[in-house]
Computed example of a mutant assay.
Amino acid sequence: MSALLTVAYALVRGTTAPFGQESEADVIPVQRDLMHARATLRRWLQARHTTGRVAEVGDLREFSDGFSGELYAFEATYRDEHAEHSEDLVVRFEPGTGYQLFLETMFEEQYRVMAALRTHAVRVPRPIGYEADAGVLGARFFVMERARGSTGQLGQDWMNEIGPQGREQTWWSGLAAMAELHRCDPRRLDLGFLDQPGRGSDPIDQQLQYYWEYYAWVSAGDSHPVIEKAYQWLRRHRPPLPPPAGLVWGDAKRGNQLFTEDFKCSAILDFEMVALGPAEVDLAWWLEGEYQTAQGLGFEAQPTVEETTERYADLLGREIADLDYYIVFAAFRLAVLRIKLYQLREGQKYRGKPRDGDKRLARVLAEWAGITGLRV
């Protein structure tokens, strides 16, 4: 799965487009000569492989469901003195400024987080290597294994076919995998580089400031009163005693997880929005995004907020705090993000409308913050 909010499946297109067709026109087209990239990757891998000689790198194949990541799958074949074997790999390139979704790409940070989590048995793809020299292939890139399984994005054929019971199993298995990440201590993983003291004294302050800067960048002076109202509310109603800060995955949903045939989560993907903060940030994003997607596609109800919160508290080993605040925070972040998504999808069929995120945010503010009468 690509790096980027594939909540866009049901959100950027609205609820009118046939599901899945929005991937026909991705935000980032092919940016390089793939034959040259293939030959360069073979040499690059050879220098990093410790068990055998890289005999061949197969064709680079685009992912059909990507939005921000220029991402290719390929097969690498190795030979040693005893045998030949192969493995499926993925290369991801850093987006250029013309296709940059976020205020900062956090490209190297994503790789470092994934590598750190792998050492603590969190279900992430095995990192192969990171290239900091953009001159090698025209952009920074990293290579990782292609984890087995299918994306849990609602609307995929296999997710349609497994029925409500199967989808509920993916819900709980996906949350259990996410809890493994949340139980990690960022200090023990040496993830202090995610701290942004220039934006605030604690992770929530830092994230609020980040998304306010992001809003200023993407809005380019065009006012979005609902987003501004939400930001003011989030500043005024910050929980006085925030939960313990840990690692925030960022784009927390089944669409950024892989599942095996028995509905077990096999991998967590996409750390483009990684940050520090309490687990509530991810849990609220999961609930807000998953419910929006289900509603947009006409799916039956997912497990309830109450059921999910209770189960997740057991997985974390502590109570979930101030979920209403973090639900508003999730809708606020998504509304800002969707301004940029709308811009990037100019000329594409399933672009949506410029203030779709504002409309959803207004509904969330009414339900979770008691702020009514907002006009979009």
Results as ranks from 00 to 15, higher is better:
Met1Gln: 11
Met1Ser: 13
Ala3Val: 01
Val12Glu: 08
Arg13Leu: 08
Ser23Thr: 08
Ser23His: 12
Glu24Phe: 15
Val30Gln: 13
Gln31Ala: 08
Arg32Ala: 08
Met35Lys: 07
His36Asp: 14
Ala37His: 04
Thr40Met: 15
Leu41Asp: 00
Gln46Leu: 07
Ala47Pro: 03
Arg48Lys: 12
Arg53Gln: 09
Arg53Asp: 04
Val57Ala: 05
Asp59Trp: 00
Asp59Met: 03
Glu62Tyr: 08
Phe63Gln: 02
Ser64Trp: 15
Phe67Gln: 03
Phe74Gln: 01
Phe74Leu: 01
Ala76Asp: 02
Thr77Cys: 07
Glu84Ile: 09
Glu84Asp: 12
His85Lys: 09
His85Ile: 00
Gly98Tyr: 05
Tyr99Gln: 07
Tyr99Glu: 13
Gln100Cys: 04
Leu101Ile: 14
Phe102Arg: 14
Glu109His: 07
Arg112Gly: 03
Val113Glu: 02
His120Val: 10
Pro125Gly: 05
Gly135Pro: 02
Phe142Arg: 06
Met144Tyr: 04
Gly149Trp: 11
Ile162Lys: 00
Glu168Ser: 10
Ala176Gly: 06
Ala177Gly: 01
Arg187Gln: 15
Asp190Cys: 04
Gly192Leu: 04
Gln196Ala: 15
Gly198Cys: 02
Gln207His: 07
Leu208Ala: 11
Leu208Arg: 09
Tyr210Phe: 15
Ala216Ile: 02
Ser219Asp: 08
Gly221Met: 13
His224Tyr: 13
Lys229Ile: 00
Gln232Met: 05
Trp233Leu: 10
Arg236Pro: 01
His237Met: 14
Pro239Ile: 00
Pro239Asp: 09
Leu241Lys: 11
Leu241Asp: 14
Pro244Tyr: 09
Leu247Ile: 15
Val248Thr: 11
Trp249Cys: 01
Gln257Tyr: 06
Phe259Gln: 03
Phe259Asn: 03
Asp262Ser: 14
Ala267Phe: 06
Leu269Gly: 04
Met273Pro: 03
Ala275Asn: 15
Val281Thr: 05
Val281Arg: 01
Ala294Asn: 01
Gln295Ser: 12
Pro303Ser: 07
Thr304Leu: 10
Tyr312Asn: 02
Asp314Asn: 07
Leu316Pro: 04
Asp322Ala: 14
Tyr325Thr: 02
Ala330Gly: 06
Ala330Phe: 02
Ala330Glu: 02
Val336Met: 07
Lys340Ala: 06
Leu341Ser: 11
Gln343Val: 14
Leu344Asp: 00
Glu346Ile: 04
Gly347Glu: 10
Gln348Asn: 03
Asp356Ala: 13
Asp358Lys: 10
Arg363Thr: 13
Arg363Asn: 14
Leu365Ile: 05
Leu365Trp: 06
Ala366Leu: 04
Trp368Glu: 02
Ala369Gln: 06
